[in-house]
Structure formats: C-alpha cells, structure tokens
C-alpha cells in the first residue's frame, strides 16, 4: 500500500530543477506526481515516479542528495467536502499530515491525493477500516 516517494534537496539556483528532471528524462523515468516545497535558500522536490529505485540510483550517481520516503495514495471523493471527511477521520486517530499533494488525474469519480503522515501505519489502518480506498503502489506508479 505504501508508495516510495523520492525526495531531492535542491539549492535555489537557476536551472537546478531542470537538471533533476533532465537526469530522469534521459534515463526513461516518468514522473507521476510532484510537489516542490521551497524556502528562500533551498527546496525539496518530492516525486512519485514509475521506477523509484532506478531514480534513486541515477540521481545519486549525479550527486544529488536523495532519500526515499513512504507515503500513501488515497482515493478522495471528488465532490465538495470529500477531503474534509478524510482529514477528520485522520484527526480522530491522531495522525498528522506532514504534507500532501494531488495527482492531476482522476480514478473514476475520485481524485488521488498523496499524503505524508507522521504515522503511516496508523493512517493506513484507520483509513482502511473506514472504507477509504488506498491505492496500491503499482496502480499509482502506472497511472
């Protein structure tokens, strides 16, 4: 259920982002979803790709600072209040969202949102027991 997210440290220098995506593109790695968190000096690029281990390897070879983080992809009803119901459920189980970002595409009537939690396992059990759909990782990387 857990998905491997690639996180990359990026200094705020022009062209640095393009270097990351260039390395991935050349190696035939496809980016499925991304989020960029930034401060005045540096940013953290978070990516869901179709082959995370390969991405990790090529980025390390190019001397990027990279780590793999476990996140989960959740199907969220694509209707008003859809996200709220999920967040409330997590709150009741004392799981904190560290950050989240959305996939551009939908699955059926649902939007896909990637979540990073402080306690992934607790989140998975809380969500599953309440019938919230968590996408299998192979589904996510092949969207």
């Amino acid at each position: 259920m857990k998905v491997e997210q690639i996180s990359i440290f990026i200094e705020n220098k022009s062209g640095r982002l393009a270097e990351v995506t260039g390395v991935l593109g050349k190696t035939g790695i496809n980016i499925r979803a991304l989020s960029l968190a930034d401060t005045s000096d540096f940013g953290i690029l978070r990516l869901i790709v179709d082959d995370s281990q390969k991405a990790l390897k090529v980025l390390r070879e190019q001397r990027f600072t990279v780590s793999i983080t476990e996140v989960i992809g959740i199907e969220v009803p694509d209707s008003p209040g859809g996200l709220t119901s999920i967040l409330q459920l997590l709150d009741q189980h004392n799981v904190n969202v560290e950050y989240m970002y959305a996939f551009a595409e939908r699955v059926g009537n649902n939007a896909i949102i990637i979540f990073r939690f402080d306690n992934v396992d607790e989140a998975i059990s809380a969500l599953s027991s309440h019938g919230v759909k968590i996408l299998p990782s192979e589904r996510i990387t092949s969207i």
């Binding site: 968190a37 540096f42 990279v66 780590s67």
Partner: peptide, 15 residues
C-alpha cells in the same frame, strides 16, 4: 553541506 544523513523530505527538519 547537506548529506543523506542530515537531509529530510520535511522542510521543518532542515530548518
């Protein structure tokens, strides 16, 4: 320099 030991995917950790 940030390295893989000090790096985190969370901004708050790096800050």
């Amino acid at each position: 320099e940030v390295n893989e030991q000090t790096f985190s995917d969370e901004i708050k950790v790096l800050q």
